[in-house]
């Protein structure tokens, strides 16, 4: 650090860069839709909310979509009103539109995201791999109240996580937050006792089984409806628990996968390891 630039110059230069960046962003924002200017009816999302994508695709294939002089095209798609607990046999029966986009309309995208998460988790495990060193005698043991309390709280948190991802198509939530909630419950178990180790074989089996289940559900769609990750079950009445076809199945798989992956990440971060290879 002999010929290092002084700290004042560094912070002044950083402030300069940040100022240029922020001025540029504000110039970009002036032309952007904001507040009252946002109109969802001009966006693709209108089709997702009205659950009418297949009609629009059919119009597009037959050439009628572009016929009438390029007006706001998506407004021309016929609209049929949706009533909660009444309308049946929709194109996608989930009451939560975000869920129907994540799992159904953009399911292949979600498969890619789950793959990225798996790669990140296995990278963490590979970097921190090694022989598990037995932790030294800590000065502070957690008390008995902490030990029992975290175990009772883990049952409640686990149940809540399962509730979140089973009801993903009806209420806010889904597989990703449900898995995160379960992983934070397991983190509580780590805090409750020194030297706690989860069942590693169980975590691995859960993770691989749920990942395989996601792909197999997609393949069933490929062979029965002729499109990967297509909905092959009846969609039922909107708002019922047994509705929306395969969405709850896939969300159960995603929830188990995310929960076991994040728990494995926390486990490999929290344990002291010693390298055997170098």
């Amino acid at each position: 650090m002999k010929n290092d630039t002084p700290k004042v110059f560094k912070s002044i230069f950083a402030l300069f860069v940040v100022a240029i960046f922020m001025i540029g962003l504000f110039y970009a924002f002036v032309s952007m839709p904001k507040g009252w200017g946002v109109n969802v009816n001009n966006r693709v999302s209108r089709l997702y909310i009205l659950k009418n994508v297949r009609t629009a695709t059919r119009l597009l294939d037959s050439g009628k979509f572009f016929a009438k002089g390029m007006k706001p095209l998506r407004a021309e798609v016929p609209y049929k009103p949706i009533k909660f607990k009444k309308t049946a046999n929709l194109e996608d029966g989930a009451a939560n539109v975000v869920t129907s986009i994540v799992v159904d309309y953009r399911g292949f995208d979600t498969l890619g995201e789950v793959t990225v998460l798996f790669l990140a988790a296995s990278g963490v495990m590979m970097l921190l791999f090694g022989k598990r060193v037995k932790p030294k005698r800590k000065k502070t043991e957690p008390s008995l109240i902490m030990y029992v309390g975290t175990r009772i709280a883990f049952a409640v948190i686990f149940l809540f996580g399962i509730y979140i991802f089973v009801h993903g198509h009806l209420t806010p939530g889904g597989g990703f937050p449900g898995g995160a909630v379960i992983a934070s419950g397991i983190l509580g178990l780590f805090l409750g006792r020194n030297g706690y180790t989860p069942n590693h074989a169980g975590l691995k089996v859960f993770e691989s089984l749920s990942g395989i289940a996601f792909v197999i559900i997609g393949l069933i769609g490929l062979f029965s409806v002729k499109s990967f990750l297509a909905n092959f079950l009846p969609t039922g009445i909107i708002g019922n628990l047994y509705s929306a076809g395969f969405i709850s199945l896939i969300y159960i798989a995603i929830g188990m996968k995310v929960g076991s992956e994040l728990a494995a990440v926390v486990d490999s971060m929290i344990g002291d390891t010693k390298e055997e290879w170098s």
Partner: peptide
């Protein structure tokens, strides 16, 4: 979310 209200549209 259609659970919150019937009138998304």
């Amino acid at each position: 979310i259609y659970t919150a209200t019937d009138h998304l549209a």
